[in-house]
């Protein structure tokens, strides 16, 4: 199933089952969505529930919060996370805090969906991965969908959830055809063990999952049997699954596409330090994006983020340096 079709199916089923579910955003209606996620929904549910908005991100999220307060279940689509910066006040000062500030009286059943990451040469204002801007905020649930199965189940869960969910997608995944599994007892907060292994735990999420899988094939040739874990949920973080794996492998690497300083890996490493420091044979290795805005030139763009080759090289070097 196409990744984007999995998302579409989740929205479609929720809109079909519950009249209070609406979707709003730029080009989501007649155009069918920039990445075709909302394709066909307007003809099925009409323009009152599939809402084409002006270019006004702050209002898209703000309006969604208001709709949620009034009893709807809005899905706000922000074209990319880069533009969500314009909506951050509504997301952080409002969506994340209303329930707490009101002593638990307010309920905000809202999803903000958006893709991020490096696509292909879209340059600095269109290529960011801002997950830690949201995963550092109390009051938000932050999920990432790296695959069709999680995209479908995770988004369905998010739409039904009574709390605000930031649902992160990746621009390069939309057209990818992926294996799809129906899951009965789906838990959005569980990390997925993508591949079991004995020697090394590699944590990752979103599009880097595929780069890690590529890298692991190469590592195998060096006799390294890596366990790959997809975090899925960034807040809350499934530290239990992570700690269990580290207990077994004694070594941990995190591969992320966002900037290294203050990136997702920083928080993951901090939690590992607290939970399983004594299980580690070596310092955790962070393989992340460089601390620069993403450049347009393809060679520089690729140099700014992890790639399978770089992942392999860095792991081999790290192993040699630490004698592990």
């Amino acid at each position: 199933m196409l990744y984007r079709s999995a998302l579409n199916r989740a929205i479609d089923e929720c809109m079909g089952a519950d009249e209070s579910v609406v979707i709003l955003g730029e080009d989501v209606g007649r155009y069918g969505g920039s990445y075709r996620v909302s394709e066909g929904l307007i003809s099925k549910y009409g323009e009152k529930r599939v809402i084409d908005t002006p270019i006004a991100e702050l209002s898209i999220v703000g309006n969604a919060i208001g709709m949620a307060i009034a009893g709807l279940r809005p899905i706000a689509e922000i074209m990319t996370v880069n533009f969500s910066l314009l909506a951050m006040d509504q997301i952080i000062n409002h969506a994340a805090k209303l329930r707490y500030m009101s002593g638990g009286k307010m309920t905000i059943p809202m999803v903000v969906r958006m893709p991020g990451g490096v696509s292909r040469q879209l340059a600095a204002q269109h290529s960011e991965s801002y997950e830690t801007l949201y995963s550092s905020v109390p009051g938000l649930i932050v999920l990432t969908a790296s695959n069709a199965t999680y995209a479908y189940h995770g988004l369905k869960w998010a739409i039904k959830s009574n709390d605000p969910v930031i649902f992160l997608e990746h621009e390069l995944l939309y057209p990818m055809d992926m294996e799809f599994k129906e899951i009965q007892d789906f838990d959005p907060f569980r990390a997925e063990i993508v591949k079991e292994g004995r020697d090394l735990t590699i944590l990752t999420y979103l599009k880097m999952r595929y780069d890690v899988i590529e890298a692991q094939k190469e590592l195998k040739k060096f006799g390294i049997d890596a366990e790959i874990i997809d975090l899925n949920s960034l807040r809350p973080l499934d530290i239990e699954t992570i700690a269990k794996s580290i207990k077994k492998t004694k070594k941990c690497v995190i591969v992320e596409e966002d900037h290294k300083t203050g990136g997702m890996g920083a928080e993951v490493v901090a939690q590992i330090m607290e939970e399983c420091f004594y299980d580690l044979d070596a310092p955790v290795l962070r393989i992340a994006g460089e601390d620069v805005p993403i450049p347009y030139n393809r060679k520089l763009e690729l140099a700014s983020i992890p790639t399978p080759d770089k992942i392999v090289d860095k792991i081999l070097k790290w192993k040699a340096e630490n004698g592990i």
């Binding site: 040469q121 340059a123 600095a124 204002q125 269109h126 450049p295 347009y296 030139n297 520089l300």
Partner: peptide, 10 residues
């Protein structure tokens, strides 16, 4: 003009 860092949009 932007040393290849900006591209068409910048």
């Amino acid at each position: 003009v932007s040393k290849g860092k900006g591209g068409s949009m910048h």
